[in-house]
Design a protein around this nucleic acid. Structure first.
Lengths: 359, 359
DNA sequence: GCTAGCACTCTTTTATTCCGAGTGCTAATT
DNA sequence: AATTAGCACTCGGAATAAAAGAGTGCTAGC
């Protein structure tokens, strides 16, 4: 059933006032904004309550939005916000910095998101299964060589191998051709014991080194698969009045800080590529999030990699502003990481022009 | 002035009871433990108060230790604690895991420390100025090569360079000898514009690539200098009764989470190699820490690197247990990172035997 | 030098009252 | 038929008052 225009305006006003003040909203205050008497507002609010969009903490308090009310607000009522010039400038400035490591990038992005939104934020990246494209071996001295692996996602991993016995230059060369022949194009799960054993059989006098390099290869692929998750600004929670109760704050902060818990819950709210998703209160799967909301945006991190950034806050979150900021940051990241045709890891620069500002 | 034996026992009992319960300690409860009447205890406590070791929150409450009281307790009264078998096992288990990246190691160590002590913990590493020992260049294809740098601290850095124009194998070889001649043994501050310019003059047709590789070299050295600082378990604070006041909790958590703030304050409390240092309440420099205590241990991370782990908590911290745990973890890390003669970055394993357990 | 006893202090807890914001309903108005 | 004014009623929160309790400091006796 479609709401009357006036009901929509009232619901919007209630949501926005409650978001701003955290106080239940009474009929008198709204009368001015809506342009009719408080009695009329009362009637309307009473109906909105019956429909499930508003709730009353107790008989003689104002109304607050129910989860359904927030949902309606987010889906239909909320105005898309534009960021101010200062805000876009701050974001662009941060994103311009070159980043080498995906890990560190996630840290920075998390911090940026948190400081822009004033809520705890997280950033993560999901990678497609990788394989090793090529191996190189650098002979350093009789006891030392370096293995370098170039992965299909264009990251480069290396390892300094220090041996208790000595090797010749030629042995290292043998190793190189051995691994380039047997271990390239192989994914994580395809490195089996039998592959290692057959390589060892072909290894001749470099037999003893195969296991070392193979375990390095497995490490590389495992590291490439692991999705770094970074959480930033968890302490921001404490400035929200709904978390003045230290026990509540503690419970949620624990949940947020525990990467693995968060990780396992997030897929449920992951938005489609370049999308934005809001889950409100009880819509969240995790028990700890039933009184909180999550806003999450995804971006294209290039090379088939998908990145996510998100924000956790009370259901009374400033959805409009958070959505605008997340979208803008996510768009910036997509551009930074996938926008140019250079592989990740190079010094791509992002300069979003004013005209491209997210609307 | 030296305290009587009985005064020491009373002070110890007050400190330990207050650490355990967070409640001011009255004379009656102590009477049993000390073995004399409550009136005697009252007289003694009154003197301890006059001497500055105890404080009274208000006239009709028990006594709590003053910072000076904690100091005396930590310096002279506290018993060195032994860890339980389960605790040493848990620590050893965690430390056995091989770590490649210093960054990630700091994360893990921070989490371990926090979960063992139940306080927020941080871990950081301080590195000596590094230089590049040698460069290697791997030619991938006409537009792509990889630079690999082996640093004096035995870490290896790399970068995939993707070019908008094509290069020959020989040019890459030229680059290699060029950089090995001019940029090895050079520290951070010694890479000057004039060095880059003179290298460019010698570069012939690889002129345009010098800047790219030089900036990579600078990045490497800068990254090697930067001390990664990781904070873990900040939310543990909220379980401490002294932080039931959300504003206090917020202030301290902000401070703790802000790496740069923490970083600038820590040197003041850094203990000597393999030492342990406790700073209590007002002994801390940072205003935000005036009501908190910091326990910090250092370890030898090999290759001249020094590592620190520490714990932040209320002045009412369980010094004895925290000190024991930090020492044990720090000793384990020293052994893990510097104990074997293999360079950092290899798969050293740490297995502390029972007989070597920290006492 | 230690201890029992007691008056006194000061916080914490509990009970009670009061106040006001806000509602829901009814009757009057447009 | 929708809106508004008016009014009695509800209920949580602030304020006040009273009671309870824990602990001290002092004095006098052992």
């Amino acid at each position: 059933m479609e709401l009357s225009d006036r009901k929509k305006r009232i619901l919007t006003a209630v949501v926005e006032s409650y978001i701003a003040t955290a106080e239940p909203v009474g009929s008198k205050g709204l009368a001015g904004q809506i342009g009719c008497s408080s009695a009329t507002i009362r009637n309307e609010m009473s109906e909105l309550t019956a429909m499930g969009y508003l709730e009353q903490p107790h008989t003689s308090a104002g109304r607050i939005p129910s989860p359904a009310g927030y949902r309606l607000y987010v889906n239909e009522l909320m105005e898309r916000q534009k960021l101010s010039e200062a805000e876009t400038a701050a974001i662009n400035d941060k994103l311009t910095k070159k980043q080498q490591q995906i890990d560190q990038l996630m840290s920075e992005v998390g911090q940026l998101t948190s400081s822009m939104t004033q809520y705890p934020a997280y950033a993560m990246a999901v990678k497609p299964p990788a394989a090793i494209k090529r191996f190189d071996f650098i002979y350093v001295d009789a006891n030392t060589f370096i293995v370098v692996a170039l992965l299909t996602d264009n990251t480069v991993k290396n390892k300094l191998v220090h041996l208790p016995f000595s090797v010749h230059q030629e042995q290292v060369t043998t190793l190189s051709s051995l691994f380039n022949a047997n271990f390239t194009g192989v994914t994580d799960s395809e490195i089996t014991d039998s592959l290692i054993r057959s390589t060892e059989r072909a290894a001749g006098d470099t037999y003893g080194l195969v296991a070392v390099v193979a375990s390095f290869a497995m490490e590389c692929l495992a590291a490439a698969k692991a999705a770094p998750l970074r959480v930033a600004g968890a302490s921001q929670l404490l400035s929200q009045p709904e978390f003045r109760d230290p026990d509540k704050a503690h419970a949620l902060m624990n949940f947020i800080s525990d990467g693995s818990r968060l990780m396992s819950d997030l897929p449920a709210v992951a938005p489609e590529p370049n999308g934005l998703r809001v889950t409100i209160g009880p819509e969240n799967l995790a028990e700890e999030l039933k009184d909180s909301s999550v806003v999450m945006a995804s971006y294209d991190a290039g090379d088939g990699m998908r990145g996510y950034i998100g924000v956790v806050g009370p259901t009374r979150m400033d959805y409009s502003s958070v959505a605008a900021k997340l979208s803008y940051i996510a768009a910036g990241l997509s551009r930074l990481l996938a926008g140019s045709d250079a592989p990740a890891g190079l010094d791509n620069k992002l300069v979003l022009k004013e005209s491209e500002r997210h609307e």
